[in-house]
Amino acid sequence: MAIVSMTVNGKPVTADIDPRTLLVQFLREHLRLTGTHVGCDTSQCGACVVHMNGAAVKACTVLALQADGGDVVTIEGLANGAELHPMQAAFREHHGLQCGYCTPGMIMTAVDMANRLGPDLSEETIRSELEGNICRCTGYHNIVRAVESGARAMAGQPMREAAE
C-alpha cells in the first residue's frame, strides 16, 4: 500500500491505496466521484478524461500515485453550485448528447480545448481536437455545435441558441 495525496475539485484528499490503483478508480471507487466514466479502459475513448494540473488526461491510463501532489478537476468540479459551467450549459442547450455516457469526457476535453485554443474554434479544429473522445451514438454534430458555443460562452460571449 502507498499513501497518495492530491487536490480533487478544490478539496485536499489523502488515502492509503494499492499502487496499481488507476486515477479513474481512485476517483470513482475511493472518492465516489462517479461522473468520470470508464469506457474502453485502453486510453482510446475519452470517457475518463479529467484535468490534471490544468491539462486534460485520460484517467484510465494514469496511476493515482502519478497524480500525487497534483490538482485534479473532474466533471463534478465544473459547476458553480447549481449554476452549470458554460460548457455544460452549452451541451444542454445544443443537446450535445444522446445516451450521455461519453458526455463527462467530452465536456472535460472541450473545456481544455477552449482553455488552450481560445473562444473561436472552427468546426475543423473541434473535430480534430475531439480525436480522442468517441461517441458511440455517433452524435458528433450536436457535440461540435455545443463545443463551439460553449467555448464562446466561456469567454463571456452570449450563448448561441440551438437550431430547432
Binding site: 478524461v49 488526461v57 480525436e131
Partner: peptide, 9 residues
C-alpha cells in the same frame, strides 16, 4: 501523435 490527452502524458 495520438490525441490531445495522450500528448499531455
Amino acid at each position: 501523435i495520438g490525441d490531445p490527452a495522450v500528448r499531455t502524458r
